[in-house]
Design a protein around this nucleic acid. Structure first.
Lengths: 202, 202
DNA sequence: TAATGAATGAAACAACTGTTTGAATAAGGT
DNA sequence: ACCTTATTCAAACAGTTGTTTCATTCATTA
């Protein structure tokens, strides 16, 4: 089906070059269709972008939230689960669409199109709130908003660094794909460090 | 002087749109010079980019390294100094060139031009090594390379998150410029969390 | 089979890109 | 004054972009 072929090719192009730098001629060449197909099946480049993103949005697995925690001993495993899923689902080279989405999101972060806000609201915010609900279970109820947000940012910062700045990690580490080769170790490290912050305040 | 006007305008354009998306017509319009000036004073867009970066590279203040640490009590203050300087010098809105460089570096991270490697080697690696030398002072000498790199990545990840993904931080925090308004708190939080990781292993 | 509508294709459109040209101007030295 | 060099300018260059046009092909239904 032509429409599907275009979307797959578009995701690859958009992931590689971002929305603005991607060209419909490349997309069509990759999909093996005529240029006019873009304005026939979609109403232009913008609508193709939107529909491509909508397609891949639906594939993301859910993240655990604080409600999963019944006892204190659950805290570590649920937090670990969140971090692991967050890293895996964006770096899982088997499900290639997620790899593409990760790159597209990074492009949007730097050079946002009109879709950016929508993307944050429907995708990143729910993830962040579920992490926040997990952390709240390990913190006193009267903790300030700034403090809890800073703990969220710390975990998020670590994950985002490995996911988005793999090129930088690779240059510093200079020995293969660090996250790919040490993902269990990385997950444990982030979890431990976050838990230490929690323990101290309790 | 025409050449200087062009460089200033170019830095702004490159910071906003990245190397590829920036247009020399916009740069010239901003600088108030003719288009042909680019190929007269520089030899083209690429050389303009290179010279613009070289100019702003020289403005960056140095970061402290492990050699500054004489006693154990120095560790915290030197680490804090590194983090503070690293955040400040890229987010100091008084020295606008650094703000521009930060954005250009981010563009390079996602869509590297031929200059990228050079940029990493001469700029980011020295910073990272100085941080590494600080952390070594607080860790046993037989620590593994992976473990120390992971600690470096953790601090770097936190800093990079606030610097590069301010848009994301802003959306989640939804109440002004988080880093700008809480930079002391952020520096302390990152320092404390890193120190806890060090203490535990000693 | 004939007719209708959806899908495709080659070619052109206007607008943009980095670069080049060659003439006009400015500046400085003799 | 002159000559030489450095600098600026409007205009055009060839190439690319997203979009449109219109004739052609295909599939489906009457």
């Amino acid at each position: 089906m032509t429409k599907n072929k275009i979307i797959v090719a578009a995701l690859e192009e958009f992931a590689e070059h971002g929305y603005h730098a991607a060209t419909i001629r490349n997309i069509c060449r990759r999909a093996g269709v005529n240029i006019a197909a873009i304005n026939y099946h979609f109403s232009g480049k913008a609508e193709l972008y939107r529909q491509s993103l909508e397609m891949v949005f639906k594939l993301k697995p859910p993240l655990p939230c604080g409600e999963k925690i019944q006892s204190d001993s659950d805290l570590k495993s649920v937090l670990q689960d969140w971090i692991k899923t967050f890293l895996y689902r964006s770096n899982n080279k088997i499900i290639q669409e997620n790899l593409l989405l990760k790159k597209i999101v990074h492009h949007e972060m730097l050079n946002p199109s009109e879709i950016f806000d929508e993307l944050i609201e429907t995708h990143l915010k729910p993830d962040v709130y579920s992490l926040e609900s997990i952390l709240r279970k390990g913190l006193p109820p009267d903790i300030s908003e700034k403090e809890i947000k800073m703990r969220v940012f710390s975990i998020l910062g670590n994950c985002v660094f490995y996911l988005f700045h793999e090129r930088l990690v690779e240059k510093i580490w200079a020995d293969g794909d660090f996250l790919e080769d040490n993902i269990e170790m990385v997950v444990d490290h982030i979890t431990e460090q976050s838990l230490m912050g929690l323990k101290l305040i309790q």
